[in-house]
Structure formats: C-alpha cells, structure tokens
Nucleic acid binder design. Structure first.
Lengths: 212, 212
DNA sequence: AGAAATGGTTATCAATTGAACAAATTGATG
DNA sequence: CATCAATTTGTTCAATTGATAACCATTTCT
C-alpha cells in the first residue's frame, strides 16, 4: 500500500481501506471540471475526498501536480474508449470508431472536455503541457485520417485547420455543456442506442461522400 | 459625460477623456474569458483598464455585476452579427445566415464562447442567469428553424436535443479554443472569404438534404 | 461664493487561498 | 518491546481576494 510503484494490490485483499490518493484524484476531477483550476480550492477537494487539506500537498507536491494527475487519469480513461492505432484498414471505419468512442466517452465522462475548455481558452502553461503531453498524438492521428478521407473525396468541405476542432466541438460540447442543455430542455438521459445513432449521424454529416 | 443615459457625446468634443466604465467592461471581458469568473481578479481587471480596483465597485456594485455587464455587452455585439427574426421567408436562408453570423462573430469575438464555456460546465447562478436572460431566445429560434428544416427532410440525422449544442460546438469551439489550435498547428489567420467558405461547408454538412 | 454631486485615490478590512511545519498515529520489522 | 518509515492530523503563515470607508479633486447648480 505504501509503495505504489508496481501495481501490486494489497496482499490482505482488504480493499475496504480507501486509497486516499485515488479519492483525491476523483474529488479533484469533479472540482476542477466544475470550477476550473483557479476556482477549485484544495480545501473543497479535500472535503469531497473525505480527507484533510494538507494531504494534498503530501500525496502530490502541489495543486498543479494534482491537476496534472487528474488530466493523466482522464486521458488514460479516454484511451480505453478508442481503438489503438493500426486496428483498421479502412479510414472510414477508423473515423467511425473514433467519433463513436468520443461521443460515448464524453457522455460518460464529460469532465475531460470541461477541463480542457477551462484551460484552452488562454495561452498558459497548463494548456501547453496538456497539448504537448496528451493531445498532440490524438490530434495528429485524427488529422491523418481526415486527410486520407479527404483524398478519397468523402469529407465535408470545411477548412482543414478547423476540421479537427470542429469535430471535437460537435462530438463533445453537447455533453460538456449538459448543464446548459438541461437548463433549457429539462433533464436529459441517453441510452447507448441513442448515442450510437447520434454518432452515426455525425459521421454521415462530416463524410457526405459516403452517401454519394 | 456624467450622464450616459442618452448617447449624447460630450459637448466639448474632447473624447481624449476615456469612459472608465467602458474600459472596465473591455478589460473584464478579456480577463473573464481567459481565466473564468473565479480566476479573474478585480485588481487584474482594473490594471488592464488603467483604473483603480475600487472603481469597479463604484461603477458596478460588485464583481458579479461587472460580469453580467460583460455578458450583456457581448450578447449585444452578437446580435449585430445575426439577422433579426422575420427577415427570411426560407428557413434554409435563415439557417445559413445564422451559421455564417456565428462563425464570423466567434472568429472576431471568441470571448463570449469562452465565457459561456467557463460557466456552462456546472450548475450555477451565473449560468442560469445567462441562459434565462440571453441564451433562451437564441436557442428557441434555432430549434424552431431546425424543426422546420427537419420537416422538409433536409437535416442531418443527429439527435434533436443535441442538435442545438452540436451546431454551437461545431461553429464556435474552433475559435474559442484557438490557443489550443495554434499550439498544435502554429499561428493561424483567416480572412473573410475563408470563413464564408467554411461556414457554407458546415451548412452543407448539417443540411445534407440540400444536395439531394 | 457656497453647497451638492460626481468620481478618483489611498488605506484598510475580514475572509480565503496554497503551502508549510510539527506532533500524533499507524503498521510493519527486528 | 523498540524502532523506523509512512501517513494523518492540527495549527499556522504569508499572500491574495472582494469590498468598504475616508479623503480629495472637479464640476454643477443655486
């Protein structure tokens, strides 16, 4: 338990003991996503985690480091929603799986989009770290698939530089802004089938060439 | 100059005197959009405006009130980019003008989208006020047009409840997240013609029936 | 001229912030 | 039992926060 280096589970098998580090990350995920980095206080995070505020500086070196641990955790979860590179022969299949994965992930874990939205509105170190460490590989792959689809004449006629963020906005924003949506339309709930249908609709919208 | 009620310009014609209230709103727009409500300090806003911090509480009653004045100002600017209701006979024309207007506005003034993104990630009073006071009429009109287009079989097959926010995300997010985009692709600059072409691409993507 | 009003300036307030420190506790090992 | 490292807990600190009050300068009206 003390050594978290190798992922060996506590030999006692008694996981009634909570992992404070884990609890802190989960609580921080909620607070950072809701209020942004500046708006989230370490005390609020600690209370939500059922811990004491100084434990944040013990288990993580600083509030910044806790924020990075949260982003790390969220991107790792996102990875499990997306098929690894090289899985598909057909770029259309790859595109379809990417859109579906992003829609399903955003619906289940809107925190990552919200966290990015808080940071990506300005030029700052946290945003740069996030982009360089995690976002760039995702974006590069996306752009490569988009270029291949465009070469085949399948893509919507939108600006290449904006294609990536346009797709990102279309797939994730509805879920990231769900409080806004629900304020207008009332409580909303989606089952898997609806999300799959919605994702397929997005694919057809951005790849009109499929119907041609 | 003291009475800003009727838009009469200072009779002296000397407008080297700056309108502090105006300067504060402009400075607050930048700070709130970059750092969110909690992350923006009244001192930073005052410094950017070339004013003193207590002047914020003099010209506005509170930081909240200043934030609301900023939103009010931004929505008023948005209004000038959108054609008034009843201008169009054809819902396709109305949709096209709405998409174009939103794209042009977001490219020129990404602050409104950023400000909304900061607030709409959580249920809070500022977001509720923003939705009830400004967003609802825009959304209602958008939904009405979308329903009309759908009845004519022109729309992409995406979920009705998500259509509004999906459109919003696709049209505004690329510009709201421009720091993120530029971190990846390097400096980006768009001229009016490129934006018009991009907007038309979005229209065709979301109204595939137009090509049928 | 004198009073009133408007707005700018300085100083200060209580509250909250992230972080640091030391004492207390825990659990395992010799 | 004694020892030691790993955590937890309680307290404290300097910095920053939004807001307020007191004071000063200028203009406006009587």
């Amino acid at each position: 338990m003390k050594e978290s280096g190798d992922g060996v589970v506590d030999a006692t098998g008694d996981d009634a003991e909570v992992d404070v580090r884990r609890q802190l990350i989960d609580a921080a995920t909620v607070e950072f996503a809701r209020n942004g980095f500046a708006g989230a206080s370490t005390r609020a995070i600690a209370i939500r985690a059922g811990a004491h505020q100084p434990q944040i500086n013990y288990h993580f070196s600083s509030k910044e480091a806790l924020w990075r641990a949260v982003v790390d955790d969220l991107f790792s979860q996102l990875g499990s929603f997306l098929e690894p590179e090289g899985t598909f022969d057909d770029p259309v299949d790859e595109f379809r799986q990417w859109v579906l994965g992003l829609v399903l992930f955003s619906a289940e874990r809107p925190e990552l989009s919200r966290l990015i939205m808080h940071e990506a509105a300005s030029y700052n170190d946290r945003m740069n770290w996030l982009v360089d460490t995690f976002a760039r590989p995702f974006v590069d792959r996306r752009d490569r698939v988009w270029a291949e689809l465009k070469a085949r004449g399948l893509t919507a006629d939108i600006d290449d530089l904006l294609a990536e963020s346009t797709l990102l906005g279309a797939t994730t924003i509805p879920f990231a802004l769900m409080p806004h949506v629900e304020r207008i339309h009332g409580p909303v709930d989606f089952d898997r089938a609806m999300l799959e249908r919605h994702a397929e609709g997005l694919v057809r919208a951005f790849l009109p060439g499929l119907d041609g």
